[in-house]
Design a protein around this nucleic acid. Structure first.
Length: 272
DNA sequence: CCCCAGGTCGTCA
DNA sequence: TGACGACATGGG
């Protein structure tokens, strides 16, 4: 077991905000999250995150990195407020929400699966894929399955993928695997170049590419425009077209964070 | 049964 | 460019 300073993170808001698909709230109020290479259970008090895991190697760094605890969100928030006064209200509502640093390959496949799909079924599909092809982890006497590594599914066939029940998205996943090696260029590319490479994968459009870059590559300037954000932009600013340019000018280089805040507020309102 | 899901593709004007 | 239906599957 380890303890880390939780800073100002709100665990539940960050985990259950649609960016992550491998989190579970336990009956005792703690959260279990399947990371890239291990399973963690997180309990929080006022000041600390108390972490247990099947693998305690380097655990403090792993957790600090995953929850991005070392990033100065105050600086980002102040920047957004300076750019747009209406963020004072928004930030009050989303305080503690952070963009998690998730695995890029997992995000690639997960967000391809997410298209025209609902969160429940997305989670189920990812769970199935992990069960069939990922590594098994035993933690607290329970079995968990890590999201498969590229090497574990690179030779998968369309027929095998059918068993996962991805619907029409299975051929998109296959194309992503085929083009996997090209994605290594992403780190050396600017935003537009990175988006272009991702969109060369069949089934990856602007929205999915943006999610992959924001959640899997921590490109905080990249922002997914979805139906919620479109609605908000229409209602608040009376803007219908070129929404991407509109926001980029307003909030770069933290447009991704800004749009996530807006999305998060909208979604919470719906869930009440 | 019909509707929808954090979209994208193919097609046609 | 822009609009529009199809797309697999399961939950409401």
């Amino acid at each position: 077991m380890i303890k880390v300073d939780k800073k100002d993170i709100n665990l539940k808001e960050s985990l259950f905000s649609g960016q992550c698909f491998r989190m579970y709230q336990e009956d005792d109020g703690t959260f279990t999250v399947v990371l890239n290479d291990r399973v963690i259970n997180v309990q929080e008090d006022n000041k600390y995150l108390i972490i247990k895991s099947d693998n305690e190697d380097n655990l403090k760094n792993v957790v600090t990195n995953y929850f991005d605890l070392d990033r100065d969100y105050d600086e980002i928030n102040n920047y957004l407020i300076k750019k747009d006064k209406s963020f004072e209200e928004i930030i009050k509502k989303v305080k503690g929400y952070k963009i998690l640093k998730q695995d890029s390959f997992e995000m690639l496949i997960s967000y391809i699966i997410s298209q025209n799909n609902n969160v429940k079924r997305i989670m189920k599909s990812i769970e199935k894929l992990s069960e069939l092809y990922g590594s098994e982890i035993i933690f607290n006497d329970k079995k968990y399955y890590l999201f498969p590594k590229y090497e574990q599914i690179k030779n998968i066939t369309l027929e095998e993928l059918r068993n996962v029940g991805l619907g029409f998205r299975d051929k998109y996943v296959l194309d992503a695997l085929k083009k996997y090696n090209k994605l290594k260029e992403i780190d050396s590319l600017n935003t537009d170049g990175a988006i272009e490479i991702l969109m060369s994968i069949k089934g990856v459009g602007l929205k999915v590419a943006s999610c992959i870059l924001l959640f899997g590559y921590q490109r905080l300037d990249v922002f997914p425009i979805d139906t919620w954000v479109k609605k908000y932009t229409r209602e608040k600013y009376n803007v219908y077209k070129k929404i991407d340019e509109f926001y980029k000018e307003k909030y770069n280089p933290y447009t991704g964070v800004a749009i996530q805040y807006i999305f998060h507020v909208k979604r919470n309102k719906k869930n009440n």
